[in-house]
Design a protein around this nucleic acid. Sequence first.
DNA 1: CGAATGACCAAGC
DNA 2: GGCTTGGCCATTC
Length: 108
Amino acid sequence: MDGRFFERVYGLVRQIPSGQVATYGQLALYLDYPHGARTVGWAMRGCPADVPWHRVINARGRISAHGRPPDEVVLQQALLEAEGIVFGPDGQIDLRTYRWAGPAWSME
DNA sequence: CGAATGACCAAGC
DNA sequence: GGCTTGGCCATTC
């Protein structure tokens, strides 16, 4: 795959520090794609082993379990919990607290 | 080039 | 509060 954007997405995801998470739409914005959230999510479909894909969640602070084996979803949650992220009763994360601020050039 | 897909997002019911 | 619809973008067939 010669996915150019994919690699950019992967590179950005790799920059996500431990204990923090980012949404697809957020990553898309950082990549200069305000509406390319789907493309980001699609890029994750190839989830390379060197990419902390578990730190990427949807805008609702929940793990994306769209037609995927529950094992992967459970694993993702376990990895996030291992990084200090606490899930709510509905398996939801408090984005206000764990939301990645983005790269250095991106400020709030 | 046209149609289909995909781990999304926001709005509507 | 959960399901459905439309839209957006890039990649693949």
